[in-house]
Amino acid sequence: MNFKKLSGFAVSASMTLSLLSLPSLPANAATSDAAASGAAMSKQELKAQKKADRQARRAKKNAELSTLEKNGYSPSANQTNYPQNLQNAQQKAAGQKPTNAPAVAP
């Protein structure tokens, strides 16, 4: 009887592992497609594209931080009410009235 339970467990475990590996297959295929298209670009072009992407991401991040700072958030200030301070600034930036509810500890 223990053998039947053990074999049933082994079968279910192997099926679970095989199902868990399925979602990663399309991601690997997409990565190889990107590598194939990247091979068509020269090394310098690829480097320039990555640099432009980094600069765009940095500019977006800095713009978001600047907007939050204009609406009252200061990352260098005392962070005792951290999540609530950030959420209030986000609500102000979105044009909503901030809620002054205290932050809830997890």
Rank of each mutant, 00 (worst) to 15 (best):
R57S: 08
G72R: 05
K70W: 04
A77Q: 00
A93P: 03
Q84W: 00
T16G: 07
N85D: 13
K61E: 03
A40M: 12
A93D: 08
A39G: 08
N71Q: 06
A56K: 03
S24N: 04
N2A: 15
S24V: 05
A105W: 13
A27R: 12
S37R: 09
N78P: 01
G95K: 08
L86S: 07
L86V: 09
Q49L: 14
A52T: 06
S32R: 15
M1T: 13
A34C: 13
S37M: 07
Y82A: 14
E64P: 00
A10D: 06
A52G: 10
N28W: 07
N62S: 03
A103N: 10
A93S: 14
M15F: 03
K4C: 09
A36W: 05
P98M: 00
S76L: 12
A48I: 04
V104M: 01
S14L: 15
P106A: 11
S12G: 01
E64M: 12
A94Y: 02
A105P: 09
L65C: 04
Q91H: 09
L22F: 00
P75H: 05
K61D: 07
F9Q: 03
D33M: 12
D33C: 10
R58E: 10
G8F: 03
L46V: 11
P26D: 01
S42Y: 07
